[in-house]
């Protein structure tokens, strides 16, 4: 077997909660709490879960935009967590991020041309002429007319702005793209355009995606494997088909059953969970899901369930299987 493109090992990111006059640390938000997974070259791993469960923090910590509290992030075998800014620079060109909000992620005072030139200038790459050519190439790649280069972001629709964000991420021919909710702010019809574009680009450039989203239908369409997070933890990860057809973790089961299906003739049995997602400042002991779990047992309240391979390629962290 070839080496995975990315290996995330026991990744933790704790944010200190500071309170009081002396800003003393009064505990931690365990935004990412012992997460491990791998990404093979050319695949798309979807990452789903409810708001605040740590999806974005996972993405940012992998890219070292946030430094992990502990754990390792191996990119082509090299651990990024110990590298300094200079050492990370060449690697950063190969790992790019696309953001949810095409409005705030583009500088509103810069033209599209300057937005696309900026990363090349920062990295000090290419001649002036080559840079200009690259801008035109990039626009073409994402299906925008080269004539738009001298316009400003506010002159574009949400879908077009997202294309610009994608063009910028493609500047240095990346191998890994972390897409953080790239279509969540878009209308259904525009969402389909952007998803198709991302898919074409993946085929053309053999891109590997970590695709963060909360829409389970979108993730199913777009991913090869899917990981489900709950309160900073990965609770289940499996091949897409397996995860959607036979989810094992009670949370995955509830999450999937909660998705409304666009067919008025289908009436589904739904697992409606009671209560809210607990506060991440004060997560439950044992299994983080036990306060809402319909299957909760004695052991779930006290002991954190280990990740177990329940079927070949399907891993679940739940005491029902341990």
């Amino acid at each position: 077997m070839t080496e995975p493109l990315l290996e995330v090992e026991n990744l933790k990111k704790y944010f200190p909660i500071k309170k009081g006059l002396f800003r003393r640390t009064r505990g931690y938000v365990k935004a990412v709490d012992d997460v491990s997974f791998q990404l093979e070259e050319g695949e798309t791993l979807g990452l789903v879960g409810e708001s605040g469960c740590g999806k974005s923090t996972t993405g940012r910590t992998i890219l070292q935009l946030l430094r992990p509290t502990s754990g390792r992030v191996l990119y082509r075998g090299q651990d990024l967590t110990g590298l300094n800014f200079q050492q990370l620079r060449p690697i950063r060109r190969e790992m790019q991020m696309i953001f949810q909000d095409p409005y705030s992620s583009l500088n509103s005072r810069m033209t599209i041309r300057n937005i696309l030139l900026e990363p090349m200038k920062i990295h000090g790459l290419y001649t002036k002429k080559e840079r200009e050519e690259r801008v035109e190439e990039l626009l073409e790649l994402v299906g925008l007319d080269r004539g738009v280069a001298d316009r400003y972001p506010h002159e574009f629709s949400g879908g077009q702005r997202q294309r610009i964000g994608i063009a910028r991420a493609l500047t240095f021919q990346p191998r890994l793209i972390i897409a953080d909710e790239p279509v969540s702010a878009l209308d259904v019809s525009v969402q389909a355009q952007v998803l198709n574009l991302l898919q074409e680009l993946q085929e053309t450039f053999k891109l590997t995606y970590l695709f963060i989203a909360h829409d389970l239908s979108v993730v199913k369409h777009f991913s090869t494997r899917v990981g489900v997070m709950y309160l900073g933890r990965l609770v289940e990860i499996a091949d897409k088909r397996r995860l959607y057809q036979s989810p094992r973790h009670p949370y995955t089961q509830a999450l999937l059953s909660a998705v409304p299906v666009p067919d008025p003739e289908i009436k589904r049995e739904r697992i409606v969970l009671s209560g809210d997602v607990p506060n991440p400042k004060n997560p439950p002991e044992g299994c983080a899901f036990h306060t809402r779990c319909p299957e909760c047992m004695e052991i779930c309240r006290v002991e954190r369930p280990p990740m177990i391979e329940v079927e070949p390629g399907q891993f679940t962290a739940c005491h029902l299987y341990s």
């Binding site: 389909a192 998803l195 239908s217």
Partner: peptide, 14 residues
């Protein structure tokens, strides 16, 4: 254009 939970499609209609 809506991705489906129950069907598989190579490309979405857009």
């Amino acid at each position: 254009s809506v991705p489906s939970l129950t069907e598989e499609r190579d490309q979405l209609y857009s």
